[in-house]
Design a protein around this nucleic acid. Structure first.
Lengths: 376, 376
DNA sequence: CTGAAAGCGCTTACAG
DNA sequence: CTGAAAGCGCTTACAG
């Protein structure tokens, strides 16, 4: 591990070379106002001295912190690590740091989280909003990662297309009666996924159940009635997330139904354990890296541009800028105010594993008794 | 959502009240050098104007960024969300932000991640180190979250005690032959957990298998030989993580063994889905909130103290401080250099669910055939 | 109790 | 091509 040492400042480099700090700054930032030779010498000394620029000084002068904020809805969502990693990655590439905040369940907390990040002077915000929340003008560029159905400007996976591909997959396996399982109808992501699956399935009978509604009636962790659905003729259970798929898998198992022999099961997200379990879960994966890159790049553009992005937004608060406050260092953040304008959809990828198989009608109701149970 | 507005600076408050910025600063920071009445008026105007201090200005002046860095080993580890949330939470309480970085698989990346955070001027670092990595002197206070067996200064869950409690639980259920499943013998956390379980089990036969070794031979996702172990007389499979437990659960299921009737299964960590599956997984939960608080508080102490914490560490690099560089704003970070000294162990909590039950010897080998299979 | 002044480290017009 | 100067917003001795 590196041994700590006295971090020299710009002035020290300037002193040791007998030049001005301005020249050192120019040389290091590569703006080309310095002769190539001098620039080279300066870079060499900087490297030798182990110079690390003070972000605080730069931030104060430029009015930019070099930091992005990441606001997550429910950190308990296992998708979080993927997103956080991808964003951090993309941000690092752009030379930015990532400050995290989560809105832990509460809707009010989301606002506070954003507020905190804003107070810390983030240059931009990546928000994965809570269900039913809309992110408005915030005082800095914002990229929203959500469903494409979300009104406003977002970057997201094409949940609908992913669902459609999954639907076609099930259709091609001969499934003609599919049970769709979502968690909350308030989620646009889930609605997109279900809508896509339905479209992919075409005329296939597809009934949808929402866990939230079931649990309101039957209590947390209540049965999803999967065995009943199978008894009624369903040959596949398509869920909107791997987490729900896991619950379905075990409920079916508990009912003595075997996957995929008796019934196929699918998820969404390709969470870490989806490939570990037996049978492996057929699921749909989003390209988080690409989504993160789009979001971060959009922010970078908005941050770099003085205000053009804001011009694309009708609700921009440019008028709020006090006259005589324009330009110069430390200029109001309002001028860069903008919600990232590009609405992008990133394709999803179907991952077929063993949890889906041909629809079979041969399944016997008695299959839910094991030999052991018969003997006892 | 809040409408963005021109953020006024200290001077504006000072101007509008006809006082000096020094007085405003003093009033707002509550250092008590201002008459109560004036202080009150200042606070009122600040609130009215929507004053938000510039962290950049403060950072530059005080030499402190108000930000902590969080370095995570493998962000894919599902434990990450819990830790990240807990740290963010604890940091927010202390008025600190959290900058994330992950070492994505590579060991070298961990060093880079730390470096990046350091360059951003974090005041302290919380590191969950990669297996086999040791975190040395870094140039700022560091709190390591790992196993208590890790040499050096750490805060962690008492994995050993948690394992012991689990072992006693299995013992009390009558288990006399337990299979322990770990991932890598290089992990001190896993060794602690397994050591604890063994201790709790007392004289019970306990064999340990390491997945890493198995997969080196049998390939990724190979069988863990659980059914064989059961055939040899094992009545319980105790794993070092819920993720492994999930794999065990499905492998056992696949082999036609029923949990907990034929064999009990336990995990560690109480991941989100552990209560969702059927049967619910018996596991051991760490008090992440407490761990995070200890880590953050330790950092706060080290940050506040000029250097005392460093004095506790024999490897401190105090000697590196250039003479004449002590004290004053912007003073070298080296002086605050310190690895948090307190080695703390936080108790873990056993969560008993349906995946563990009494040891039963009555299990029939034929149980892995379902009626359906017999008929076909 | 209050204020004038200095300075943290940087970048950016502006002059030369 | 290079430098002197100003200033981002804050806090902290130091005087009064």
């Amino acid at each position: 591990m590196s041994v700590s040492r006295q971090t020299p400042r710009l002035a020290r480099i300037a002193d040791s070379l007998g030049v001005s700090t301005a020249t050192v700054s120019n040389a290091l930032s590569g703006k080309g106002r310095v002769s190539p030779e001098l620039a080279e010498r300066i870079r060499a000394t900087a490297a030798e001295l182990g110079y690390v620029p003070s972000l605080a000084g730069r931030a104060l002068r430029t009015g930019r912190s070099g930091v992005l904020g990441l606001v997550l809805p429910d950190i308990a969502n296992p998708l979080f690590p993927q997103i956080a990693q991808a964003i951090e990655n993309a941000a690092a590439k752009a030379g930015y740091g990532v400050l995290i905040a989560d809105s832990r369940g509460q809707i009010a907390t989301q606002t506070q989280a954003i507020e905190r990040l804003l107070e810390r002077g983030v240059d931009g915000l990546v928000v994965v909003p809570r269900r039913g929340t809309r992110i408005g003008q915030l005082g800095c560029p914002v990229a929203v990662i959500d469903s494409p159905s979300t009104p406003g400007n977002t970057v997201s996976a094409d949940h609908w297309a992913g669902g459609a591909e999954l639907g076609r997959h099930l259709l091609s396996l001969g499934h003609r009666h599919v049970l769709l399982v979502g968690n909350s109808p308030a989620s646009t992501v889930q609605n997109d996924r279900i809508g896509g699956i339905r479209a992919g399935l075409g005329k296939v009978v597809a009934e949808t159940i929402w866990i939230e509604a079931l649990e309101d009636a039957g209590g947390r962790g209540c049965s999803l009635g999967l065995a009943d659905a199978v008894a009624r003729g369903a040959t596949a259970v398509a869920t909107v997330s791997d987490l729900i798929a896991l619950r379905a898998l075990t409920e079916l198992h508990h009912a003595g139904l075997e996957v995929p022999r008796d019934v196929s099961v699918t998820g969404f997200d390709d969470l870490i354990w989806s490939s570990v379990i037996t049978p492996g879960l057929t699921t749909v994966r989003m390209d988080v890296a690409t989504i993160a890159e789009l979001a971060v790049n959009a922010l970078m553009t908005a941050i770099a541009a003085p205000s053009p992005a804001a011009a694309l937004d009708t609700e921009t608060t440019l008028a709020d800028v006090a006259p005589g406050e324009r330009g110069g260092p430390g200029r109001s953040r309002v001028e860069r105010d903008a919600v990232v304008a590009a609405q992008s959809k990133v394709p999803m990828e179907l991952v077929v594993r063993q949890s889906t198989g041909p629809a079979s009608r041969s399944h016997k109701k008695t299959a839910n008794l094991t030999v052991g149970e018969l003997i006892q």
